[in-house]
């Protein structure tokens, strides 16, 4: 982990100020987890809670996921750049109101690979591909914005998968989906999955049957990914929380790549951007005949 990263005092001071003045009801940030090593979400309601706030390279969670739950109050949120893209997504999709969210943006050095009780020294794969180290939306910024160096080959693993034969792809994914236990943690951790009734829970029409089995799992994963097409902000929380290590980013990033190629669009860059599947251009052809 990087040394000398001490954004904590600034975050705490701002949080204390916001809670003391009553500007917000709650500050959503990070605190140390029960292993004494990694981080977990913290909901600070009292100025006294503020001293629990931390920020370091274990702060993996995308806290923007909690904003829809707190729609009815005014909250402050500690936001990394990827989290800030999720905030933009939620704003663009009219799920939250800008004036009810105070964004404490944090310049992010990247998050390390970690599981409960264990911290690695490698940056998470998604952080190695990160293009924005400074939040895209904030009311208060903590940290010095660095110069951005876009990753050289962000989609090399997607390209490798694309190059495989249909049979190879089919068996690869069949094996991945077969492992799913349908805990729906991927959905629950996702800031973009906020439907009041998920298609997976609808009974009529019944899209996903009760069997926790390959065919049902396949519907779940393919449609989950596609519902996030042009909306996924690549925080990769879905993959991080998956208890059976299904490589969900390989699905999400295929769509991200194609959305970029077809529509020149990356989600969450602004609060006004309309997701590409919710709009169209009359003159585009998109590789289809007339």
């Amino acid at each position: 982990m990087q040394e000398g990263l001490d954004l904590m005092p600034q975050i705490r001071d701002k949080a204390r100020e916001l809670l003391t003045s009553g500007a917000v009801d709650c500050v959503i940030g990070y605190e140390r987890a029960s292993d004494g090593l990694t981080a977990r979400p913290l909901f600070a309601y009292e100025p006294n809670d503020v001293d629990k706030l931390i920020f370091d390279q274990t702060c993996a969670h995308n806290l923007a996921r909690f904003l829809v739950n707190k729609r009815d109050s005014t909250v402050a949120i500690v936001a990394k750049p990827c989290d800030s893209r999720a905030i933009n997504l939620l704003l663009a999709e009219k799920q939250i109101q800008r004036e009810r969210v105070y964004v404490i943006g944090v310049v992010c050095p990247g998050i390390v690979e970690a599981t409960w009780g264990q911290i690695g020294d490698k940056l998470q794969a998604r952080c190695q591909l990160c293009r924005e180290h400074t939040p895209l939306v904030y009311d208060f910024l903590v940290g010095e914005p660095p110069a951005e160096e876009p990753p050289a080959e962000p989609y090399h693993d997607v390209a490798e998968m694309e190059a495989k034969s249909a049979a190879e792809k089919h068996s690869f994914w069949a094996e991945q989906f077969a492992r799913c236990i349908r805990c729906y943690a991927c959905r629950q951790a996702c800031p973009g999955c906020y439907c009041t009734e998920c298609f997976a829970e609808q009974l009529d029409p019944l899209w996903v049957g009760i069997r926790i089995a390959p065919m049902e799992n396949e519907v779940w994963h393919i449609i989950r990914a596609f519902h996030l097409a042009g909306r996924c902000i690549a925080c990769n929380e879905c993959e991080r929380v998956c208890p059976v290590n299904i490589p969900l980013s390989l699905l999400n990033r295929k769509l991200e790549k194609d959305v970029l190629e077809l529509f020149g669009f990356r989600s969450g860059l602004s609060a006004e951007a309309v997701p590409p599947l919710a709009t169209f251009k009359k003159e585009e052809r998109l590789g289809m005949s007339e």
Binding site: D258, F280, K281, E284, M288
Partner: peptide, 24 residues
């Protein structure tokens, strides 16, 4: 008026995704 414009976008994206999942 504009239903099929959405169709075009949706399946321009879903088609390569199907291919990626092993459906020729």
């Amino acid at each position: 008026v504009e239903g099929n414009y959405y169709t075009r976008r949706r399946f321009a994206l879903f088609h390569p995704f199907l291919e990626y999942l092993g459906i020729e």
